[in-house]
Amino acid sequence: MSNPGGSKKFIVGGIVMTMCVAALLYGATMLMSLDFFDSVSQFQKKLDTYNGGAVRVRGIIEPGSVEHDKTTLDTEFVLKDDEASLPVYYKGILPANFEPGSDLVVQGKYHPERKVLVASQLMFKCPSKYESKRGEYGSE
């Protein structure tokens, strides 16, 4: 650049901005991210080091385990995988695709004394995008 004053300003401004963004990303990643467990058994293995924060656990809703109170909207069910299972408590309206046997990600906090994961959010995948996950041909 032929304008040294201008280029200096650009460099300093660029460095400052990059540092701000880096600090934002670092803070968000280190302080504000949750642990994401791909399976219930993975979560059970890490229970000793559980720090009380919110986690996401993925599993399958065990058929026959769902108890839903229509008036209080209390729901209890068991999230499981091949090896382990985890009782989950949720209060609120169940999402439309909540069905025994379906694949679900639960966000919530674990209560060690009650041995239950208190869910704040039940997350399914957008069915228009992930429909192939229902075990179709031609998918992974």
């Binding site: 934002l24 968000a28 990643t29 504000m32 991210s33 949750l34 642990d35 994401f36 966000q107």
Partner: peptide, 14 residues
């Protein structure tokens, strides 16, 4: 580390 994820709040904040 272990698998981590941002939740809605983190995305909103950032």
């Amino acid at each position: 580390s272990e698998k981590k994820t941002w939740n809605v709040l983190t995305f909103n904040l950032t």
